[in-house]
Design a binder for these strands. Structure first.
Length: 739
DNA sequence: GGCCTATGTCATTCT
DNA sequence: AAAGAATGACATAGG
């Protein structure tokens, strides 16, 4: 606020400087705009939207017209500040990655997933327990490790900028709370208040365009942030608990069984699981009670999953897993995308699992684009082969899933965790596809777009005041010739306008009716740059010269020498140019022998104009004509300025649209990354499930394809055959809980 | 001749 | 209240 007031009071030059500074900001990477805004101060105006016109239309606030651009600047600052705070929705994503780091290297962190302080020991723990994590990419936790490293980097960055971000997040939190409490209609006001600009922005602004932008973008951002937040909360907590419990059930070094994860990993390497002693989870979970009852652990797992089960879409899951929607081609394509070079290819499963598991590919952009959306959904949805038995009171874990089940499928509880996220992703991708967005090009596009500031900071305004040309074209009605206008320099500014008059026009006063240079600087956008909007065909006809008051030299003007190359008011009424060169006013003025040039009449200050009229004895017809000439001349300049402002608004909106598109690409990219991480976690959980099942033995090893693990209400662990006709239950002795 | 664009002008409202 | 600014609507010229 203080910044803004300072700049506001110190004049428009400082505002221009601010805009220039902001132009640097917009070129930052996609992860730091909010920081930069906080650190660098209110470099806020994304574009110079000339929305004051709209505001003036709807609500005529008592602000000076010459300040409307500044108003719009500050108004845009509030709006765009909010838009840029959409970056906050990435915070959940960042925290989600943080969770990965905490879980892997440091078991103590698991119980307290919201404490960044424990992250410091994460890297060391990772190194200690994994042997040579960097040099052993085939250990199977490469993706997680990578995520962890990324997270560490993110956390490090976060720590460095935490102080600034705290303020920003606080502000954002307050904003969101206000939004949730007050509803949509109060959001713009809240934004204005938090930006300290409420006193500068009119009501119409809040009710008009800002509402429009606020509504559209907040919906987008809110959906994303809610989705990511819920996704993180659900999946991270559930997976975390599951992994911990499962690892508790099979602690490292206890008994002949190897670590569950090691089994999975060793399976990928073709090693004997019993000889593999590369712990992945056990060291991290060593704090857990190793004697914890398996049943209790499963129940804990199911308790975590259960709330999500009610939202499972059975029919869709069944269809998906039966492959009725996804064609074999798409399936094959997905698999091809997954295995080689994928971040998941380091995960391994038992042979049966490998046959059936439909690994969630890290959302290969090509597959997303080339395949239909259902296939994409299937790709994601079937990534977790953990179904759920809907029987009330008897939660059942089943290996039935789209992965390795032949029987009627049951929805996966963990898969349901991601339903919302997946649907949102689909809608997002659908939207992107609608607009021709290709995720494969997202990165390139983002880079390309980021290089384009999207700002209209190219103040290629006319060096001369819009009225200077006319002022310079003043000529005495008696002494000036027709060449006076063409030879006058626009920069001369003040020119003696009449031999009868002793006063010298002040150039600023002479620009009374024109578009003031300061305002022109504020409003001028880069549409005068011929190359900027070359890709907008509808703008080809718009990119004309808007220096209305300057002599024009384009081909059109050459074809229209009489009308365009010389101003109507540049000729004295008694010059010997043909009548057709003059407009109606010139002709009438000459007919009535008005002793002033039209330029003089129009651009003269009103006091001097009135004095001039009184000095000369003019007839009523002459006075009326002079006043009409002045009125029409003023209005003509006003119309020119009005049209220029319209174009300024137009291009400002174009800039904003470009900025929103960049942000959309950025958000899609982040969402894709988050979903990929979730899929990886689901795969790991599935691996653990398979391992647990493989350890349940009767007289002989049980086939995972024939049995389903169930828990009875009495605490018994049951193995239910998948064939309902020959259903038999094997009750396992309830183990003592040593909790 | 019709369409489009640029520009001027008028009427009206607002500052 | 006057002057001017702003702008929608319309007319006109030219391509």
């Amino acid at each position: 606020m203080m910044y803004l007031k300072k700049y506001f009071t110190e004049g428009l030059v400082q505002v221009a400087i601010l805009l220039s500074l902001f132009g640097d900001n917009i070129q930052d990477g996609p992860y730091l705009p909010s920081w930069r805004e906080m650190i660098s101060g209110p470099t806020s105006a994304l574009t110079q939207t000339q929305l004051h016109n709209l505001r003036n239309q709807q609500d005529s606030q008592s602000r000076h017209l010459k300040n409307v651009d500044l108003d719009s600047f500050f108004g845009a600052r509030g709006l765009l500040g909010w838009v840029r705070r959409l970056d906050h929705f990435r915070v959940p994503g960042s925290e989600f990655e943080t969770w990965l780091v905490r879980r892997e290297p440091d078991a103590l962190v698991i119980g307290a997933p919201g404490q960044p302080a424990s992250l410091d020991g994460g890297t060391g723990g990772l190194d200690d327990h994994s042997g040579d994590p960097v040099g052993s990419p085939d250990l199977g936790y490469g993706p997680i490790r990578d995520n962890g490293l990324e997270t560490m980097a993110a956390v490090s960055r976060r720590g460095q900028e935490e102080e600034a971000d705290d303020d920003l997040q606080k502000e954002d939190t307050e904003t969101r709370q206000g939004h949730s409490n007050a509803g949509h209609n109060e959001r713009p006001e809240q934004i204005l208040e938090e930006s300290g600009m409420s006193e500068l922005v009119g009501n119409t602004w809040r009710e008009g365009w800002r509402d429009y932008y606020d509504h559209a973008n907040r919906e987008l951002a809110q959906d994303l942030s809610d989705q990511v937040a819920s996704l993180e909360a659900q999946s991270s907590m559930s997976l975390q608990e599951c992994l911990r419990l499962m690892d508790d059930a099979f602690p490292y070094g206890e008994g002949p069984e190897s670590d569950p994860v090691d089994l999975c990993l060793s399976g990928a390497r073709g090693e004997d699981p019993s000889h593999v002693r590369q712990p992945l989870l056990s060291p991290l979970l060593s704090h857990a009670d190793p004697s914890m009852d398996l049943e209790q652990q499963w129940q804990d797992i199911l308790a975590i999953m259960e709330p999500e089960d009610t939202e499972v879409d059975f029919s869709r899951d069944a269809v998906m897993q039966s492959g009725s929607i996804e064609g074999p081609g798409a399936m094959d394509h997905d698999r091809q995308d997954i295995v080689p070079g994928s971040s998941l290819d380091s995960y391994s499963f038992s042979p049966s699992l490998n046959d059936g598991v439909h690994l969630g590919a890290p959302l290969q952009p090509t597959s997303v684009v080339s395949d239909n959306l259902p296939s994409t959904f299937n790709l994601i949805d079937t990534a977790l082969p953990l179904p759920f038995d809907g029987s009330v009171g008897s939660p059942t874990l089943s290996h039935q899933s789209g992965v390795f089940l032949e029987e009627p499928v049951q929805p996966s509880p963990l898969a349901s965790l991601l339903d919302d996220a997946l649907l949102d992703e689909i809608s997002f991708l659908g939207l992107a596809l609608e607009e021709g967005f290709n995720p494969t090009q997202a990165s390139e596009l983002e880079e390309e777009l980021d290089t384009d500031s999207g700002l209209s900071l190219n103040f290629s305004h006319s060096p001369a005041s819009p009225c200077e040309s006319e002022v310079s074209s003043y000529s005495s009605s008696s002494s000036s010739s027709s060449s006076s206008e063409s030879s006058a320099s626009p920069s001369e500014g003040a020119v003696g306008y009449n031999s009868d008059m002793e006063a010298i026009l002040d150039p600023e006063e002479g620009a009374a009716g024109g578009y003031s240079p300061e305002v022109s600087k504020m409003c001028s956008t880069s549409y005068q740059n011929p190359g900027r909007y070359n890709n907008l065909p509808w703008l080809e006809q718009v990119g004309h010269d808007h220096n209305y008051h300057q002599p024009r030299a384009d081909s059109r003007n050459q074809r229209k020498p009489f009308k365009s190359q010389k101003s109507h008011y540049s000729k004295p009424y008694d010059c010997d140019i043909a009548d057709k060169m003059w407009g109606r006013d010139e002709r009438q003025a000459r007919a009535l022998k008005i002793p002033f040039s039209n330029n003089l009449i129009v651009n003269m200050p009103v006091e001097e104009f009135n004095e001039l009229l009184t000095k000369h004895h003019l007839s009523e017809a002459q006075l009326n004509l002079i006043r009409d000439i002045r009125r029409r001349g003023k209005n003509k300049m006003a119309a020119q300025n009005c049209r220029r402002r319209k174009l300024d608004i137009l291009f400002g909106l174009e800039d904003e649209v470009a900025g929103f598109r960049r942000q959309k690409v950025r958000l899609l990219k982040e969402k894709t990354e988050n979903l990929r991480s979730v899929r990886e976690m689901k795969q790991r959980l599935n691996c653990l499930y398979q391992e647990v099942f493989s350890r349940l033995r009767d007289e002989q090893p049980l086939s995972a394809s024939n049995y389903t693990i169930q828990f009875g209400n009495d605490g018994q662990v049951l193995l239910v055959t998948n064939n309902s006709s020959t259903k038999k239950k094997k009750a396992y002795k309830k183990q003592d809980r040593r909790k």
